[in-house]
Design a protein around this nucleic acid. Sequence first.
DNA 1: GAGAAAAGGTGTACGGCGTACACCTTGGTG
DNA 2: CACCAAGGTGTACGCCGTACACCTTTTCTC
Lengths: 220, 220
Amino acid sequence: MTRLNRERVLRAAVALADESGIESLSMRRLAQELGVVPMALYKHVANKEQLLDGMVDTVVGEIDPPEPGSDWRGVVRQRILSARRVLLRHRWAYRVIESRTGPTPAVLEYLDSMIGVFRDGGLSVDLTHHVMHAMGSRLLGFSQELFEASGASGGAEPPGPALAQRYPRIAELAAAAAHDGDSVVGGGCDDQFEFEFALDLLLDGFERLRVEGWSPPGRG
Amino acid sequence: MTRLNRERVLRAAVALADESGIESLSMRRLAQELGVVPMALYKHVANKEQLLDGMVDTVVGEIDPPEPGSDWRGVVRQRILSARRVLLRHRWAYRVIESRTGPTPAVLEYLDSMIGVFRDGGLSVDLTHHVMHAMGSRLLGFSQELFEASGASGGAEPPGPALAQRYPRIAELAAAAAHDGDSVVGGGCDDQFEFEFALDLLLDGFERLRVEGWSPPGRG
DNA sequence: GAGAAAAGGTGTACGGCGTACACCTTGGTG
DNA sequence: CACCAAGGTGTACGCCGTACACCTTTTCTC
């Protein structure tokens, strides 16, 4: 077995999280996967937090660079959808990114580049600032649902009529959602459509503000 | 000391999380706070997951009911801002809510009632469905930033010029943000303004779609 | 090539966690 | 008063992250 290094550790960690879920990624389990004693990992990452940081950077590094185009909205759109594809490959990643206390270098670079697209598209510094906030985690392709789509709903809750009676509006929505009965928000829907619906709504809103020459309200 | 019950346990848990942060909420610590042995808690909650579920319901129960009004946007806006105030009182809550695998009863009730406001406001079932998705966690007052505002940035990163050189666009934005130098996204900004900016952008977009009689694109 | 120094890997151990399980204590009911 | 269910206890297990001291291997220098 060749020697360990930081990159091998990170790649193994990402692979392990992809396969077994983030909750089963422990230093001990990762070490075992690498055929090494747990403490060996600490020669390559300072601690578990830094391991997670490194995993985030690995994943964010998979996002395609922006493809230059004349329409800033198209460039943003394409890149965010690329980010989304990456996040769908690594379903644990959005939780980990959100759990970081600060942005990692790869994320900073990504954000910097995104800001560049907005600025080059003609949005003022102020508008870009608020736009970045408004996009929030959507910038990285999160759909930020309230709950994981579908999934085992855990509780032994009666599946149909009882719920429909207690939450009639939810039932109405669920019934209307394309496929058959689904969980409250997310299950049975076309997640990709939902993501793009919200993304385009926001991008259109930004464009409208740009055209109107939006400027921040006076302070105070 | 009076006897324990589920509600006392939940209230103590919420209080402990408020004071010491969610990361220091352990069954053992909570038991100690209640002057009881750890295993005593398990007579009132099945396990830690269910404790967290209960905490979520407690917090969501603090959100004001909708104040009826003629303008659906106003009703939604007011209620979401109430949710946001609650979430700001319990800063650990949004993380816990996101970590739940399924919605709890209080959350279901909240969502149901929110759907009612949209429907009564004249949005079609389909549009309401997508609107709920588009709002995502914003429905509960999350600003869903990429990272916690400000906070100790952990790393010994040089604060100013070096970062500005590597991430010039970020630096430009940061410089323009009202107050002095802040972290990438969040610090030094008026979070409340940012939240309302995005919220109103979305609500305005929804209203526009409603007026235009939006209907879902044909399938396939 | 010899030897030192740096880098990488090991073994043991500690304090924390959630919680299973068997047990005791208490308060309310017949 | 006896009983029994509900509530509280004590012990123990198997995880976790990681500090610390140690050994081994590689790499660098003369």
